[in-house]
């Protein structure tokens, strides 16, 4: 079971308190009318599916109920960090340095 740090509650809690919510930093199209079929495909269906560090969303569904973002290594399942929604992508090189 994963232990997950909610950046709002500032607590590390067991996975059943949370819901996974897919890849992070996929922006809704600003002008949906202008999107081509390729762009719709990419927005709706294409995913990075990274093996290694992965930017993803979680929701503290059985707690504060807020969405937040995380970087997790999908090989070890270890979280590198979690951060509030709306914050910029953390710098991966720095995070990996911190792991050493």
């Amino acid at each position: 079971m994963l232990l997950i740090h909610c950046p709002y509650c500032d607590e590390t809690l067991p996975e059943p308190e949370f819901a996974y919510a897919g890849e992070a930093h996929i922006d809704r199209p600003a002008d949906p009318q202008q999107l081509s079929d390729e762009e719709w495909r990419d927005f709706l269906f294409i995913r990075t599916n990274a093996k290694g560090p992965h930017y993803e969303r979680w929701r503290h569904i059985n707690g504060c109920a807020r969405f937040f973002n995380a970087v997790r290594d999908t090989v070890s399942d270890k979280f590198l960090t979690t951060y509030k929604a709306g914050e910029a992508r953390p710098d991966l090189a720095k995070l990996l340095e911190g792991q050493k």
Binding site: P16, H54, T74, V75
Partner: peptide, 13 residues
């Protein structure tokens, strides 16, 4: 399991 992973293990719950 609910989350993306390549670890070939999952959660106990």
């Amino acid at each position: 399991d609910s989350y993306l992973s390549y670890s070939q293990t999952g959660s106990m719950h």
